[in-house]
């Protein structure tokens, strides 16, 4: 039971990070109905910038409390990522807003490759290890351990989601964003500057991504120039799962995907142990006796789960769990 609880805690933490990244995809999609393919790289750069700043602050040897050092990393990463998000919109999306749909997607793939390899040039190929500055206190909850970093990630995610929801639903600019999402032309007629709104969604998404990148880096203790790709794909799957274009959906999707992955990696192996199955168990009796197990699908397929979720959702419920807007066909 404590193991199950531990897996749920793991899943919630990872899921929170996915959710924050997914918000970036979903906001952009909500407004221009395009996937920001390079969002994962923005997250990676956020982690890398934070890493550099944190290392520099630690290197200075000032008697700063660890919390302040990490905050310094975040404060540096957010504006850098916002600038990159804005740049992405200007270079890859705005000039092609009226081009065929494939065009911005292809430029975004190109930008993603460029960002990734620029990061390689700046931070090198080796994984960067975040220094262990916070003493990672862990608390026992019903036999499972939850660390202070995990608590911080979950709390921060909830706060950010709440803040974003407030911003989109309660502020003037939020109303402009929602109006543009409904109909760009009509919103324009109402005096909304669509260019500003679209650029804003890219930069806000990037800012969230930067924070997610720092969370990822401090949680796993490592950052690498290729980390954005798979993280971005998973977060995108989460956004689709929840219903792309829908803020609540992105959060739900992120948490669910985190849980699916943790529980999948934790239990699918045992469930597909052929020795525990009636017919196969007898067929493979010899091997079972020798090895004790014949596992069909183990944690080696962990990365497949996200893709399977994505494909299944798109095939059976393209609008996602909470999506109101049915994915337009062609």
């Amino acid at each position: 039971m404590d193991i199950l609880l531990q897996q749920i805690i793991n899943g919630l933490t990872t899921g929170s990070v996915y959710a924050i990244v997914a918000l970036g995809y979903t906001m952009v999609y909500g407004v221009i109905q395009l996937i920001n393919f390079a969002h994962g790289e923005v997250v990676m750069i956020g982690a890398m910038v934070a890493f550099s700043v944190i290392m520099a602050l630690v290197g200075m040897g000032l008697p700063l409390p660890p919390f302040v050092i990490v905050l310094g990393g975040v404060l540096a990463a957010v504006p850098v990522c916002m600038a990159i998000g804005y740049l992405l919109e200007r270079v890859a999306y705005r000039p092609l807003r009226h081009a065929p749909r494939l065009a911005p997607l292809i430029t975004a793939i190109g930008m993603s490759i460029i960002l990734q390899h620029l990061a390689l040039l700046v931070w090198g190929r080796d994984p960067r290890a975040f220094p262990q500055i916070m003493e990672n206190a862990s608390f026992a909850v019903g036999g499972a351990a939850i660390s202070s970093v995990q608590i911080a990630i979950i709390l921060l995610s909830v706060t950010m989601m709440a803040g974003l929801t407030w911003f989109v639903y309660r502020t003037r600019f939020g109303i402009a964003i929602r109006a543009t999402a409904e109909d760009v032309r009509v919103a324009g007629l109402m005096g909304v500057d669509a260019n500003r709104v679209i650029a804003a969604t890219f930069t806000i998404g990037a800012a969230l991504g930067a924070v997610a990148g720092v969370m990822y880096g401090t949680y796993y203790g490592i950052a690498h120039y290729t980390m954005g790709f798979i993280l971005g794909l998973k977060a995108f799957s989460a956004a689709v799962l929840g219903g792309i274009g829908n803020l609540a959906g992105a959060m739900l999707g992120g948490i669910l995907l985190g849980l699916v992955e943790a529980l999948g990696a934790g239990y699918i192996g045992d469930m597909t142990d052929l020795c525990r199955w009636p017919v196969f168990g007898e067929l493979l009796a010899e091997r079972c006796a020798a090895d004790g197990h014949v596992v069909l699908f183990g944690s080696n397929y962990q990365d497949v789960f996200a893709f399977l979720v994505l494909i299944l959702v798109l095939v059976f419920r393209p609008s996602g769990l909470l999506g109101e807007r049915v994915a337009e066909r062609a």
Partner: peptide, 29 residues
């Protein structure tokens, strides 16, 4: 195929990864 262009791109990308992961892991059991 009924998915729109950008979804199709991501799903095919996922498919490509799935094929690779399977080829990488179909050595056991």
């Amino acid at each position: 195929l009924r998915l729109r262009g950008d979804y199709l791109a991501i799903v095919t990308l996922g498919f490509g990864e799935i094929v690779r992961i399977f080829m990488n892991n179909l050595s056991a059991p």
